[in-house]
Design a protein around this nucleic acid. Structure first.
Lengths: 127, 127
DNA sequence: AGCAATAGTTACATTTTAGTAAGTATCTGA
DNA sequence: TCAGATACTTACTAAAATGTAACTATTGCT
């Protein structure tokens, strides 16, 4: 659970290094996006797994814990059997999500030309 | 130079996995931000290094190449001695940057409460 | 008694990413 | 002749992130 990664001593206040770097891993954006897509209703662990079928149980746990740590999601445990744990987005997440969605929309709009450039670059670098 | 990372076979069209994932590494956002900060004038390799003092030469090269590959920066070599290589942002980068800057601004605004939550979480998890 | 269900944890292995240090090329100026 | 400048590349190492598989707990159901 030690995801201190890029908390550099040189730039302890840099918002990129401190805040954004933690969202920049393999799963965080995807989990936030998926929770948001589900609407305002909280969503269970298992359901999240179904939505992101290639995430491992461990990484879903780790990702959710990190998001909780930074206050993007809440975790509510219902002491039932079998256990029920629900995850919901916080106000902080809702204030961030428009920015993330703008980024996703941009990525979608620009995906094809980017992919083209990416492929073309192979030839270029072999020159 | 094989940064295919999260190009998952399951979701080959996902903009998060394909486009954003490549910007989500330790240095890409910082390099884009730094190039942008410098204004519209191109900037030399060495100068970028001075602006981001803790990036290694190798990672600056790798990061710039990936950004070039996806069409965010151009690389212009001037055959002088000592060599001069200038990097500049493309139109694509300029269309992306407002979104990134919005994210950075959000991160800056929310940094203090997030850091607070992050610290408080330690105690919570030991309960 | 034994299995199913959910939401984990843990130890371990693998993969990916990043850092280090040395080497390359070329010309200039002391 | 030899250091200095720039922009790299390369081989190697270290560290971090992620994946895998097994294990935990509890209760209801058959």
């Amino acid at each position: 659970m030690d995801r201190t990664t890029i908390e550099d001593a040189i730039f302890p206040d840099c918002p990129i290094r401190n805040i954004l770097a933690r969202l920049c891993d393999k799963w965080s954006l995807l989990v936030l996006y998926t929770l948001n897509k589900a609407g305002k209703e909280p969503i269970r662990f298992k359901e999240l797994q179904r939505e992101i079928p290639d995430i491992s149980q461990k990484m879903l746990t780790v990702t959710l814990r990190t998001l909780e740590e930074d206050g993007y999601v809440t975790r509510t445990i219902y002491p039932e059997v079998p256990p029920r744990v629900e995850y919901a987005l916080t106000e902080r997440a809702y204030s961030l999500l428009p920015r993330i969605n703008a980024l996703i929309a941009w990525a979608l709009e620009n995906r094809d030309p980017i992919m083209k450039d990416r492929k073309a670059f192979i030839g270029k670098s072999r020159n």
